[in-house]
């Protein structure tokens, strides 16, 4: 009974379990960490987990690398892995790199303007700006400061 459970369900789906763990780790870091760079790291882990999901589903049991022999003399008995998810994930990797670099560039600019990359500090500064604005423009709201 136990073997039946661990066998196909846990071991057999190991990639998918790892995918879920990685995904949740990444998502947790994005939500829980206050440092903007760490958030990007979390986002990266989150995205990488998806690469794993896609690559796992491209695997065909007993399949080899999907490369045809040079003379294109294809043996019908050879099983090939599905190359399509790999190709898709190449695209997703490029998107991930673009997102990461853009995120980091934004952090550099935020650091220049706010002098901090800690979310708490940034929120404090923004709150101060909002309060100042409300005092300056508050008349229309009946002088609420």
């Amino acid at each position: 009974m136990f073997d039946e459970f661990t066998g196909p369900f846990i071991i057999g789906h190991m990639n998918y379990w790892l995918f879920i763990i990685l995904m949740m780790t990444g998502l947790y870091i994005v939500v829980a960490k206050g440092n903007l760079v760490k958030k990007i790291v979390g986002l990266n882990i989150f995205q990488t987990s998806v690469f794993m999901l896609y690559i796992s589903m491209g695997k065909v049991t007993g399949g080899t690398a999907p490369i045809f022999p040079h003379d294109l003399d294809i043996d019908p008995d050879v099983i090939y892995s599905n190359p399509l998810p790999h190709v898709l994930i190449l695209t997703a990797i490029v998107v991930g790199i673009a997102t990461t670099s853009l995120g980091l560039a934004l952090i550099v600019r935020i650091n220049e303007e706010y002098g901090s990359i800690e979310e708490e500090r940034i929120l404090e500064i923004e709150q101060a700006i909002t309060v100042a604005e409300n005092t300056a423009h508050g008349d229309v709201m009946g002088g609420r400061g």
Binding site: Q47, L53, P85, T99, I110, Y114
Partner: peptide, 25 residues
């Protein structure tokens, strides 16, 4: 504050897009 607005949107937008890709997968 446009910078933090863009950053927040980047984080949330990317999470959204990644959820979308998981769905497609």
């Amino acid at each position: 504050r446009a910078l933090t607005a863009a950053y927040d949107y980047l984080i949330m937008g990317t999470i959204g897009a990644t959820f979308f890709v998981i769905g497609l997968g």
